[in-house]
Design a protein around this nucleic acid. Sequence first.
DNA 1: CGTCTATCTTGATAGACATCGAATCAGTGG
DNA 2: CCACTGATTCGATGTCTATCAAGATAGACG
Lengths: 128, 128
Amino acid sequence: MSNQRVVAAGGAAEVGAGCEPAVLREQPVTEAQAAELARVFKALGDPVRVRLLSLIASHDGGEVCVCELSGAFDLTGPTISHHLKVLREAGLVTGERRGTWVYYRAIPEALAALAEALRPATVAGAGA
Amino acid sequence: MSNQRVVAAGGAAEVGAGCEPAVLREQPVTEAQAAELARVFKALGDPVRVRLLSLIASHDGGEVCVCELSGAFDLTGPTISHHLKVLREAGLVTGERRGTWVYYRAIPEALAALAEALRPATVAGAGA
DNA sequence: CGTCTATCTTGATAGACATCGAATCAGTGG
DNA sequence: CCACTGATTCGATGTCTATCAAGATAGACG
């Protein structure tokens, strides 16, 4: 199979990419927007993944080695790897291999798009 | 049993209530914060619930009758009721019975707390 | 009180998911 | 080339969840 699976599969970034901002409270989201948002929210629907994302996103230098992440949990390597894959496929993080180690990095646009979706409506109808 | 189960069980609102703002990207969240955030994110991890919340939160007058919500989906009543219960227990919406009908209303603080958690760090270290 | 409508609860079932152990892949260094 | 370490994938398993049909509750209305 491919040799570089450690790459985002295009997910959350699309929520606020080329389309409307999709502000949840401004107008009803379309079925497609809801599906995309739910996909990303579901990725965050696990305490381990929330902590993983927080550890990655708040880390100095912007990237963290998997070995450092694994050490923060009472979970086996494969389980951490699984959770990182879910975050990757949701478009929230990317992983890059450097030598023996793999470094993860958050995707700010994806987090911004989510925050945007939850934001209060500008004035209550002024957004139209 | 009780007669007024249609009430929030205290969930998301606590994320940003009396404690720290818990900004995901500012510093690593605690295990408790991660658990609470994941609880709410999980509630949003379903396309039906995202649409339900959006329909409720963006509705003129701030409230929507269940009958109106049910009509927007190809799902049975019990299923819609189940999803509304999940949103309620996550602290994202409240339901109030008025006569034969039940009206749902979003809880702005809960949505704001979530958006806050995803917000970019103020300056990148200035928050310390 | 009986009936009708709207909503919720219960019970059952099929599918999804978190977790682990074992095996595999990628790179380093003898 | 072989052994070693770090990370991922594969396969299995127990638990959770989305959905529905059937039944129960709450209130309106005769």
